[in-house]
Design a protein around this nucleic acid. Structure first.
Lengths: 228, 228
DNA sequence: CGCAGCCTTGAGCAGTATCAAAGTCGGTGG
DNA sequence: CCACCGACTTTGATACTGCTCAAGGCTGCG
């Protein structure tokens, strides 16, 4: 049983508010050194395989983290929204980016340069702890993601994706995402996704308006995902 | 193109030798406080959902990390061998275990009690860094695992699993794993796995003897995985 | 010797991808 | 303002992939 209040929330919803409650001293350090970056919908912030230059905080907008596979098809494994931090994994292990990031909407980022980031975590065990805690927690999410891909069929995965997306696009209660991106989250073809959405529409579970999806009945989605 | 020497090694092979080169002081602390645990093949070291009591080092044997899903079917997302450390993620984020661990062979573990572990990482920034680095690095592995599940078919995933297993069971050059476990790694049914293995046998890629698999031609496996 | 637990094979069916074609929407330029 | 274009979405037909169920084979052990 999963929804945003359930004990399993940990596994399916992941927000990494590392800088949620930070000391004033760090805050001002961040303020002084942050570099604002503005991008339009569709633009790519960075590509997998390139060298990281810092850590980002998403201040405005929605982004996708993805990695390209067969025939350059994207696999989208994470969506982020306001105040989420990202890009720290590859900095911390000193590797090139393991994934790309692109904008689902117009976006504003703060780039925290690598050296600033390192000096912050070096001098603030508090932040380091929080970071470690957050990264560790993400594992539960990843394990579940993988298990879902391995064991659930497209209908079930679509149901789960809608539950998550509903949570993700909370502010306007409408899911705005291209079918392509949506199918690349679920790990299926555009057409298969559309057919499942069609079924859900007929079953009164969702409403589809102008390519936006409105969830009518989350309980049914949960039931479908849990193999009702 | 992936094999154990390729630049993509990072994404497919994951060893977390956090305690690889540790100061003598820490080593003796570990030596004094470690609790040896012996288990037989098939036994479970811990179950997902239970409370962690420490961090483990696998000294002897082979284990699987898995999580149960539909109909109690296991999804195996990681195999570990000698000197691998595990169980630290859930300790670090102060959660119950996100997965279970069971023995593929007779095993010997060292349990490092929670408080010892914490005092070590608290007093040794060196270890903490190494830990953070390792955990961060694992993300690349997980992203790739998920993408493979989302985009590759059973034949391709089986090929990849064999490449990995070959690396994992390096010491005797034979893959010893039940069809059930193997299929739970790939994310398919036992029968489907068997059919693919049968094909590989006919294509001269593997040899199957007494339920053990011997890889005859890794290059072909790589080609199949990369969608030849 | 017989039983239990794996492994294997076969047949049929359900699920999913692919390809092709038509419909929809938004934006652009005449 | 309207017509057209391109991108995205939807639908249909078809083929293939992979799962399930059922049965039989093999192996090791009591």
């Amino acid at each position: 049983m999963i929804n945003s209040d359930s004990p399993h929330k940990r596994y399916f919803f992941d927000n990494s508010n590392v800088f949620e409650k930070i000391p004033d001293s760090i805050y001002s350090l961040l303020e002084e050194n942050k570099i604002p970056v503005k991008l339009k919908k569709g633009q790519v912030l960075f590509y997998e395989g390139t060298i990281p230059n810092g850590v980002y905080i998403l201040k405005k907008g929605r982004i996708k983290k993805y990695s390209k596979g067969i025939n350059d098809k994207e696999y989208i494994f994470h969506l982020l929204k306001e105040n989420d931090i990202f890009g720290h994994h590859d900095i911390l292990c000193n590797e090139v980016y393991s994934h790309s990031v692109a904008c689902l909407t117009d976006c504003l980022f703060y780039l925290i340069p690598k050296n600033v980031f390192f000096s912050i975590i070096k001098n603030n065990p508090f932040i380091l702890d929080s970071l470690l805690q957050n990264i560790s927690r993400e594992f539960g999410v990843f394990i579940n993601n993988s298990r879902v891909l391995a064991q659930h069929n497209v209908r079930e995965r679509t149901a789960l994706s809608l539950i998550k997306l509903n949570y993700f696009f909370d502010d306007n209660n409408e899911i705005m995402l291209s079918r392509k991106d949506h199918s690349n989250i679920i790990g299926t073809s555009i057409e298969s996704l559309i057919r499942v959405l069609h079924d859900f529409k007929e079953e009164g579970i969702v409403e589809v308006r102008e390519s936006k999806i409105i969830i009518k009945n989350v309980e049914k989605l949960i039931k479908i995902f849990n193999v009702a």
